[in-house]
């Protein structure tokens, strides 16, 4: 870790703190999963270790699937630290509301197609929100924060993944949520095909009906 210099905290997330630094002449992000005082040490260590090990693995597999993620330079399990490439761009969360409808469609369609690629490779992101996506100047979208991700070929896991994105859109961008989610689905459908997309949509509806106090739920 001594090779890193000029560390500056630039984002204190819920789960990890992100520092900007310089590593062998490269501008890097240092992601540290800090110990949480509220939970017992044994659980704390298990969670941090699991996520620190799995996140870079899933980021690598995402690249294989054709989904841009930052390059990982180093992993230190002892300190739950990941050193990765700094991606120049804007959080989709910040950019989305200021966009025109056609720009929104373009970005959301892109996001949908990237999620499709992940799912085709049995990769579940686990925390799809617009805060975890970076829009670069050349209209590419990088996915971040795979800490809650998993490898799964189950329809249920893919359904929850997209359900979470839908919910994140509704709570954060509620004015354009429906429109954005439709664009995401179009992009998704183009990658996975109409049949798989429809199957997933039905699964999302089932997950939503299962939720608490949903009017659409069948009367038993």
């Amino acid at each position: 870790m001594d090779e890193v210099n000029s560390e500056v905290l630039f984002k204190k997330g819920a789960e990890a703190s992100l520092f900007l630094g310089n590593w062998h002449g490269k501008r890097v992000v240092i992601k540290r999963r800090l110990s949480k005082k509220y939970r017992p040490d044994k659980l704390d260590l298990a969670i941090r270790t699991y996520r620190t090990v799995h996140e870079p693995q899933l980021m690598h597999e995402a690249k294989v699937a054709g989904v841009p993620t930052p390059a990982v330079f180093m992993v230190d399990v002892q300190t739950s630290t990941i050193i990765m490439e700094f991606i120049e761009g804007y959080q989709v969360k910040r950019a989305l509301d200021g966009f025109s409808q056609s720009e929104r469609h373009k970005v959301c369609f892109k996001i949908g197609s990237l999620i499709g690629k992940l799912h085709l490779h049995d990769l579940i992101h686990g925390d799809l929100t617009t805060s975890n996506m970076i829009l670069t100047s050349y209209s590419n979208v990088f996915f971040l924060d795979f800490g809650l991700g998993e490898k799964s070929s189950e329809l249920e896991a893919r359904g929850v993944d997209l359900h979470l994105l839908k919910r994140a859109l509704e709570s954060t961008h509620f004015k354009v949520a429906e429109e954005c989610f439709q664009s995401v689905l179009q992009g998704y459908r183009e990658v996975v095909g109409a049949v798989a997309a429809e199957e997933l949509l039905e699964k999302i509806r089932e997950i939503e009906r299962r939720g608490r106090y949903v009017t659409e739920r069948k009367n038993s």
Partner: peptide
């Protein structure tokens, strides 16, 4: 250690 299942929020 028991199943710990957090999915997004």
């Amino acid at each position: 250690l028991l199943p710990y299942v957090v999915k997004g929020m």
